[in-house]
């Protein structure tokens, strides 16, 4: 019996299976397990200083008490809908700006001489060498009413009274675009650098001006890079907490703050978990679309 078990175990965990097992286990422990805990919490209630268990074992019977109150509460307070919406809005604005700024940047990098490219990639990554918090704080010193930007504009005579830039949607957008730009540039660059230059020559040969070639060939062929970069920016931007806290203001309430309030101010872990689950569902939607597109276009990549 034992021998059979061992041999069965061996046949399952041999070769390719064993190799796959390690990352699968890793994914399970680091992403599925925490997610399941959060999901479990979201159906629970808070006691004084602990989360009530929804599983109860008593009299040889397992009772599961699922509390839907946290989810139902979303309908009772427009706070959640409004902040989800405003998070999606700021994430979308951030993504569009990153794309608009990152694309020419990535294009320039991909077209630069091959020996310059590693250095340009380094330059894009350079900000990561300093603390994220410090870099966001630095924006604060630039944007405050007696900060460098205002001083410069006033010295140039462009304005006469300081502009209110800090704690506005403007400062938030600047901070978000600044922080997430590399995540747009790098996948775009990785995509554009692979672009077959002969396709551009072929387009030129057939009479397309450089501008037309860009829109008709380069952009469509970098679609996957655009989508990958947009996902990398959009998804974390939706749940962003630190940047709105430091640079945002009364008009920039995002779901990250609501989540913080639920978890810390209200000490309501189940509600915080429910907010998280809904946020994950919201983010899952664009990922699903991306994966679908990815699968479709994968076969197109190479003939």
């Amino acid at each position: 019996m034992l021998a059979r078990l061992i041999s069965r175990f061996r046949s399952v965990f041999r070769g390719r299976n064993a190799v796959i097992l390690v990352p699968m286990l890793w994914l399970f422990v680091l992403s599925a397990v925490p997610l399941l805990i959060v999901l479990n919490f979201s159906f629970s209630e808070m006691e004084i200083a602990s989360v009530a268990s929804i599983w109860k074992w008593a009299d040889d019977a397992l009772t599961i008490k699922i509390n839907l109150g946290n989810y139902l509460y979303f309908g009772q307070d427009p706070l959640y809908f409004d902040t989800y919406l405003s998070s999606l809005k700021f994430a979308a604005i951030t993504t569009l700006w990153c794309l608009a700024l990152g694309y020419p940047f990535a294009y320039f990098m991909a077209r630069a001489q091959a020996h310059l490219r590693p250095m340009l990639v380094m330059l894009v990554m350079l900000p990561f060498w300093t603390s994220f918090l410090l870099r966001i704080y630095a924006w604060k010193t630039l944007l405050v009413s007696n900060g460098l930007v205002n001083q410069l504009l006033m010295a140039l005579g462009v304005i006469h009274t300081p502009l209110q830039m800090m704690n506005t949607p403007f400062s938030l957008t600047i901070g978000m675009v600044y922080a997430y730009l590399p995540f747009m540039i790098l996948p775009l660059y990785a995509n554009l650098v692979k672009l077959d230059v002969r396709l551009l020559e072929a387009a030129a040969d057939l009479g397309a001006s450089p501008w037309k070639t860009f829109w008709l060939i380069t952009v469509p062929l970098s679609k996957r890079g655009i989508i990958a970069g947009s996902m990398l920016v959009f998804i974390p931007a939706v749940g962003e907490y630190v940047i709105p806290e430091l640079l945002g203001g009364p008009d920039t309430l995002m779901i990250g703050r609501v989540l913080w309030d639920e978890f810390f101010s209200n000490n309501d872990w189940p509600m915080a978990s429910a907010v998280t689950i809904v946020m994950i569902l919201l983010i899952l939607l664009p990922i699903t679309i991306f994966n679908k597109y990815n699968a479709e276009s994968k076969s197109e990549e190479q003939a």
């Binding site: 307070d77 706070l79 009364p250 008009d251 309430l253 309030d261 101010s265 209200n266 000490n267």
Partner: peptide
């Protein structure tokens, strides 16, 4: 009560 406080404070601060 804590939840009410947080909610009212958020409304006070941000108007939402």
């Amino acid at each position: 009560v804590r939840r009410v406080m947080t909610r009212l404070y958020t409304r006070f601060k941000t108007g939402v």
